[in-house]
Write a protein that binds this DNA or RNA. Structure first.
Lengths: 190, 190
DNA sequence: CCTATTATTGGACAGTCGTCCAATAATATT
DNA sequence: AATATTATTGGACGACTGTCCAATAATAGG
């Protein structure tokens, strides 16, 4: 399959559809037929690109990783101040409040589901957490908190996850805003 | 079906098995056959007690509600100091660290899964959150924080959820302990 | 003890699951 | 233009899904 070929576009379509469905319905709840219907392709055609549903999930994780790497690179360019970077992270939450309230966190909910009985797949999905954790840790190092950087990064990740869970459960944007405001206060006071 | 009858025991067995399976594997990932196998009963017998898998889940939620109501009542008896009650809540997290690390929070993970595409069922499961939220709010009122009691309760719930998610994702008890320690500090300083 | 209710047995049901594959079409390479 | 590679069509596959039900057994009330 050459680059820029038709096949590559089809492949991207499949991953795009699966990405949306896995987020909106969950991995287990999304059937192969759901992906077939959403993509408008034939079953066999999808199996020409991916040998299993697991394979599609791994591709979805790869796509999300690429998307977030790009985002983090952008934040690194736009902001020099490490606190400003941390605030950009919190801004991402408020910026996605509608999806978060409706479907939860795309990273957290996926890991929570897979962590129960699909540890092998969860290990792949965990890379999404690692990406943010490592990036946040670098920010804390820049703030002169090298010794506790990783701990602080995981703390911030946890705070964000907690906010996403409660906001999703209660479908409450105001609650989400209230909590992210507190998170911003915490960052400024660091 | 009379109280104390054999039928009631069978019913409790079904709910008990389903409760465990839904927690360990998730609702969607647990098939009817899984419940049949785990309970050692026949398919038809289970349908004599519950008319659908949904029905079993609702019974499971009811059972968890009852279990937590008993727990909260115990805490209310053992502790008079509202701060001590809040600390008991945090102690529950550390007390269940093994299960939390392996399967996540039984309340949070269930709501996260159902919130995606089964809002009707999630509404039932949300009652578990309501129970803790209201009880925590009473504690905050007793601490003289009546105006913000509900907000503080939801904040504490969110903190707990975030800790559970990250500890589950990274399967890390030390991380869980570190975070609950911080939560205790926060409570004492209130 | 007889009857009515409750509980258990054991399997059938239509539908969906993820997977696979031969036949055909389209595109690249020479 | 001939050939090799890649892509698409369209359906078949067995296994499993949740649900249902008639036949039988056990228990309870009069």
């Amino acid at each position: 399959m050459n680059i820029g070929s038709k096949g590559e576009k089809t492949r991207a379509d499949i991953v795009g559809c699966a990405n949306r469905l896995f987020y909106e319905q969950g991995y287990e709840a999304t059937s192969f037929s759901d992906i077939v219907d959403a993509s408008g392709l034939y079953r066999g055609n999808i199996y020409h690109y991916f040998k299993s549903k697991e394979d599609i999930l791994r591709a979805v994780v790869e796509q999300r990783l690429e998307e977030f790497r790009t985002l983090l690179a952008k934040w690194d360019k736009v902001h020099i101040n490490p606190k400003a970077k941390l605030l950009a992270f919190v801004d991402m939450i408020t910026g996605h409040q509608s999806e978060l309230v409706e479907y939860g966190c795309p990273i957290g909910s996926l890991n929570t589901e897979l962590g129960k009985d699909r540890r092998d797949l969860q290990l792949a999905a965990r890379a999404l957490f690692d990406l943010f954790r490592d990036w946040l840790a670098v920010c804390f190092v820049a703030l002169g908190r090298g010794a506790e950087a990783k701990t602080l990064a995981l703390h911030l990740l946890g705070r964000a996850q907690g906010i996403a869970v409660i906001a999703h459960v209660y479908q409450d944007k105001r609650l989400l805003k209230r909590e992210t405001d507190q998170l911003e206060v915490w960052i400024r006071q660091l």
